[in-house]
Amino acid sequence: MLEIAHLGVRFGGLLALEDFCLTVPVGGLYGLIGPNGAGKTTVFNVVSGFLQPASGTVIFRGQNLQGLPPHARTALGMARTFQNIRLFGDLTVLENVMVGFHCRSRAAWWEAVLRLPRYGREEKRRQLRAWELLEEVGLREVAWEPAGQLPYGHQRRLEIARALATGPRLLLLDEPAAGLNPQETLELLQFLKQIQEHHQLTMLVIEHNLRLVMELCEHLTVLDHGLTIAQGPPAEVRQDPQVIRAYLGKQ
């Protein structure tokens, strides 16, 4: 599904990522962990096309993504969320999800302006599926509220729903549990497993909450200061002395 090879990113003198390699198979539930500033979000930014790496390649579903802008990568079947939630605050919850479907639209703008049949069919389908998605993530009741006014936990769910609307095969989640209490985190865990199954997703999740990651992921990559210090199944990674040092060193 996703093959990242020998990625290198630097910001001025800072080495944000060095020789990063990761292969995520189809259907995989992979985790990316590490202390603050380790370079996790940087990996997402490179994969989703917001950042050009100094070196290395990203291959997604057999295609080299070199030079492709973010929207083209989304069209190929990947979607991401942001660490600091980024919704369209002035649009309603429903509209946020509807925008997600827009990238699959085939009707041209003039068909939309003239309300020609193809556009009409597409728009109707978008509406139906948007309601289904809202039902699935439990936001049906707040569909008409401006997204910016939702409580925090709902905003996280909406951001995921909006990403799902683009029809991704690979979902990149940047700290989905940040700011949630233990109860909500548990619900999120169930929710993620559920959508993974329902949408047949491959997932790569950045998360500080180790409990969530250990429960959810079948494979972990640990970053520290841009270097990959461990890689493997959660149980193994947990025992790794370097990982323990990186995490204890932080505290």
Binding site: L91, E95, M98, V99, T166
Partner: peptide, 26 residues
């Protein structure tokens, strides 16, 4: 008609948060 269409929604999405709009394929 344009503003009330799928294209208009995408334009408002760009206004609200351009990076997020790109990330969902606009």
């Amino acid at each position: 008609a344009l503003v009330n269409s799928s294209y208009g929604r995408a334009m408002m999405a760009i206004r609200d948060d351009e990076a997020a709009a790109q990330a969902i394929g606009v």
